[in-house]
Design a protein around this nucleic acid. Structure first.
Length: 276
DNA sequence: CCGCGGGCCTGAGAGC
DNA sequence: TGCTCTCAGGCCCGCG
């Protein structure tokens, strides 16, 4: 899409998670994509009109690319689920000769147009806490975003306002690597040095480590996720606790078994022995 | 203000 | 085979 112009845009449903603006199609048609970016789980396309197309994949959203006016030959482009059509909600026909199709069975995803000057005040983006790169910067690591949180670590890390970009899998995996219990009150983490297992800094390290490794591995393919090449992600093979209920804890010399509990309506996997 | 449970959707898989 | 039930990678909203 980068550098290409929208020849035609089509919103086939009145709404995904939110209704489209009435003039959604009109505001895209004829505009050029001047840049693509990402903030936490949000995708952004800068437009020549001065607007930004903000997109979110929700749980089940995906894009696929086809040559305009013809079916993709097998393996040529990413083709999620093998079957297309049924949940193709948005279609972008680009001047590059490629058509980009947004497919989302559960419709938890959304698209929104925002003026670029207003981007920093956009509620979704404004609410985001520090990102992986922000917590990587030593200078910015002085403030512990969990300090004021009375909830469990699991709930705190799942909250995009505390730390941006973690989903259920990576919360479980980061907490296991930091040897911290998902049930522990977030505010009890120490900010000081010399707390080998109690430190917010160690947790920040674990978060960055897990996300960096997962990105290197092309993400986690539980069922739908594919890399842009169509290849599966393979970080699921590096899971230490997620979806491993009953298996022995992979921490060296730990005799624990992975447990599964529900927290805030979602599954948590952890080792009750080495995560405290 | 905060945290929690319920809700939004469809589909896949388990169990019967 | 087919039904029902549960659960899923995310997030918002109303309630207490």
């Amino acid at each position: 899409m980068e550098g290409a112009r929208f020849i035609r845009a089509e919103a086939r449903r009145p709404d995904l998670r939110f209704p489209f603006p009435k003039d959604f199609v009109k505001r895209l048609t004829g505009k050029t994509v001047t840049g693509l970016g990402r903030r936490a789980k949000y995708l952004l396309a800068d437009l020549s009109s001065g607007e930004v197309l903000l997109m979110h994949l929700g749980m089940s959203g995906s894009f696929r690319v086809e040559k305009s006016g013809q079916q993709a030959t097998p393996g040529e482009f990413y083709h999620p689920r093998g079957e297309s059509g049924k949940h193709d909600h948005v279609v972008f026909e680009m001047s590059s000769g490629l058509t980009v199709i947004f497919n989302d069975p559960r419709r938890f995803g959304f698209m929104k147009l925002i003026a670029r000057e207003g981007l920093e005040n956009e509620p979704h983006l404004k609410a985001l806490g520090p990102s992986r790169s922000a917590i990587a910067s030593t200078r910015k690591r002085s403030r512990n975003p969990c300090a004021a949180k009375k909830t469990s670590l699991k709930a705190a890390l799942s909250d995009q306002r505390v730390v941006a970009g973690l989903g259920n899998i990576y919360v479980c995996e980061a907490l296991h690597r930091a040897h911290l219990s998902p049930k522990r009150r977030a505010s009890t983490l120490s900010d000081k040095k010399g707390h080998p297992t109690d430190g917010a800094r160690d947790l920040a390290d674990a978060i960055r480590f897990v996300l960096n490794e997962a990105i290197k591995a092309g993400g986690s393919s539980l069922r739908d996720h594919r890399q842009t090449t169509g290849e599966l992600g393979y970080f699921q093979h590096h899971f230490r606790v997620y979806d491993r209920e009953g298996e022995p804890c992979p921490t060296p010399r730990c005799k624990g078994k992975v447990r599964r509990i529900a927290q805030v309506g979602r599954s948590t996997f952890y080792c009750p022995v080495c995560q405290r």
